[in-house]
């Protein structure tokens, strides 16, 4: 595990450093898989996205999506092993944020992303769903969602259309 560390990040620490030096063209974070760490990563991401000049509504939608993706990684990819690394990379390309999330946890079941059915909310209050919202939130907000298993890593990529997200309030 330790020996694989540098390969996993693929020189990401150096790249992340370089990006900060050239002035906020992107975001690159690597952190241990954990709920508190996700919270910290989101707070950092929001600050960086604001620094890119992205509007408030789009930043809020981006945080909602990132939270669901990262929580899913922590809950499922690392469900039976307490430790692992998660990496987020965000590139800002005019109106699109290109997001890549990698982790070295277990593969997605069936090597594909879940496709949740829409919830039926026309039920007695006692039967309302308390979970399973994550993937429908993600699929509602992102474009070009992909998943691949690359050796020992999961990689999810998607785009966030900033202009659409700003207008969708």
């Amino acid at each position: 595990m330790l020996a694989e560390g540098p390969n996993f990040t693929g020189g990401a620490r150096e790249n992340a450093l370089a990006m900060h030096l050239v002035g906020g063209a992107g975001l690159h974070l690597i952190f241990p898989a954990g709920e508190r760490e996700v919270r910290r990563a989101l707070t950092t991401s929001v600050a960086v996205l604001r620094g890119m000049g992205i509007g408030q509504d789009a930043v809020e939608f981006a945080e909602i999506v990132l939270a669901e993706v990262l929580n899913n990684v922590v809950e499922h990819a690392f469900a039976d092993q307490g430790r692992g690394l998660v990496e987020i990379e965000v590139r800002h390309d005019t109106d699109i944020l290109h997001v890549t999330v990698r982790d070295d946890g277990v593969p997605m079941p069936g090597d594909s992303l879940p496709r949740p059915k829409p919830h039926d909310l026309n039920v007695e209050p006692g039967n309302l769903p308390e979970g399973g919202f994550g993937w429908s939130i993600i699929r509602d907000l992102v474009q070009d969602l992909t998943y691949q298993r690359d050796g020992t890593r999961n990689e999810i990529t998607f785009g966030l259309n900033l202009a659409e997200l700003e207008d969708s309030q």
Binding site: I64, A67, N71, P125, G126, P129, E130, G131, F133
Partner: peptide
């Protein structure tokens, strides 16, 4: 900020309230 697990916890709280009692929300941020 809330994520889907926070939302689930709020739904769970609401489900514990039986009529004629009520469970309402106030002050939602954007």
């Amino acid at each position: 900020f809330i994520d889907s697990s926070g939302l689930g916890a709020i739904v769970a709280a609401m489900k514990q309230v039986d009529a004629p009692k009520s469970f309402e929300l106030a002050g939602l941020t954007r």
